[in-house]
Simulated assay, not measured.
Amino acid sequence: MATLFGEMMGRILLDLSDEVVRRLDDLKQSRNLPRAELLREAVDEYLERHTQVAVIEAFGLWSEHDVDGVEYERTLREEW
């Protein structure tokens, strides 16, 4: 494992199409960054976006229920 800024880093072998590699190389040239850094940024953004989607999708899970949340909690606690 390698380290970057004191963080342990794992390696992943990734197969990409020639077209994606070409586009990545174009971006590498324009941003003056190594491919690996561009891919780390892309993965970080992807994971952040999907984490936000999961949180957003969790809101309103009980919206179709006609049960008051506080009343439901009291009912559950009475079972203890």
Rank of each mutant, 00 (worst) to 15 (best):
M1E: 07
M1I: 08
M1R: 11
A2R: 06
A2C: 08
T3Q: 14
L4S: 13
F5R: 14
G6C: 14
G6F: 11
G6T: 08
E7I: 14
I12M: 12
I12C: 07
L13D: 10
L13S: 13
L16M: 12
S17G: 09
S17M: 02
S17Y: 01
E19P: 02
E19R: 01
V20K: 13
V21P: 00
V21Y: 15
R22I: 09
R23N: 11
L24E: 08
L24Q: 02
D25Y: 09
D26F: 05
D26N: 10
D26Y: 08
L27E: 10
L27H: 13
K28S: 15
Q29M: 12
S30H: 12
S30L: 14
S30N: 14
S30C: 12
R31Q: 12
N32G: 06
L33T: 06
P34L: 09
P34W: 08
P34V: 03
R35M: 08
A36E: 14
E37I: 06
L38A: 02
L38K: 01
R40L: 03
E41I: 02
E41H: 08
V43S: 05
D44H: 04
D44P: 01
E45H: 12
Y46P: 00
Y46A: 15
L47P: 07
E48Q: 14
R49F: 15
H50G: 02
H50K: 11
H50N: 07
Q52T: 15
V53G: 00
V53H: 00
A54F: 04
A54L: 05
A54M: 03
A54H: 06
V55N: 09
V55P: 05
I56M: 08
E57K: 13
A58K: 13
A58Q: 11
F59Q: 03
F59C: 02
G60F: 05
W62I: 01
S63D: 14
H65P: 00
H65R: 05
D66C: 06
D66S: 03
D66W: 11
V67E: 14
V67N: 04
D68F: 08
D68C: 08
D68N: 12
D68V: 04
G69I: 01
V70D: 13
E71W: 05
E71C: 00
Y72E: 05
E73G: 00
R74G: 00
R74Y: 00
T75N: 01
L76P: 00
L76N: 01
R77A: 11
R77Y: 09
E78V: 06
E78L: 07
W80F: 15
